[in-house]
């Protein structure tokens, strides 16, 4: 067993974990943050995407022990403080960017990281950015629209605060 300390959604946790425990399993089983989903065993589907020190990461592709000392945001902690929802969460609802909801949390986490680095993306850039996340329900059409909606909203919010 190895001891790790992580900050998840602003809260600090310390646990003894098996060295082989995946970060995705740590979040789900130990912290009961079940919004991070596991959809495959080859780090291909992106359902388990979280932010690790501000960057999107597939949490099935790293061990919990590797996250020791890191700051993690999961879907449960994505909404900025004081808001109920992140613009992407609003966008997915507004544009019907989800159906069964299983890939959605990972999709939103990937898109959130992407919009940080590219606040004004083209359709093509959005599609390219999300190619590591599978969705079987939507055909991606409304996911693209959701991300576009969120990008617009974030731009407007920024203009208001500026």
């Amino acid at each position: 067993m190895a001891k790790i300390t992580v900050k998840v959604n602003g809260k600090v946790y310390s646990h003894e974990v098996e060295p082989r425990l995946l970060l995705a399993h740590y979040l789900r089983e130990v912290l009961s943050l079940t919004g991070t989903h596991i959809g495959c065993d080859t780090s291909s589907c992106g359902s388990c995407t979280i932010h690790l020190d501000g960057q999107s990461v597939k949490s099935c592709s790293m061990l919990a022990v590797q996250a020791d000392g890191c700051e993690i945001t999961t879907i449960e902690g994505l909404a900025p403080s004081g808001s109920e929802l992140h613009p992407l969460q609003e966008g997915f609802k507004e544009c019907h960017g989800l159906q069964c909801g299983f890939c959605t949390t990972g999709m939103i986490m990937s898109a959130a990281d992407f919009l940080q680095s590219n606040p004004d993306p083209s359709e093509e850039q959005i599609r390219h950015a999300l190619e590591g996340n599978f969705c079987r329900c939507t055909g991606y059409h409304n996911i693209v629209k959701s991300v576009q909606w969120a990008a617009q909203k974030m731009k407007e919010d920024k203009a208001v605060t500026a």
């Binding site: 919004g35 879907i75 449960e76 909404a79 929802l85 019907h96 299983f102 949390t105 939103i108």
Partner: peptide, 23 residues
Amino acid sequence: QSVRRTEDKRYITGKGRYTDDIK
């Protein structure tokens, strides 16, 4: 009407409850 889905809130906030989420 294209009424926005009432079920979405739990999914977009990670509060959906799938079988594997149940302990």
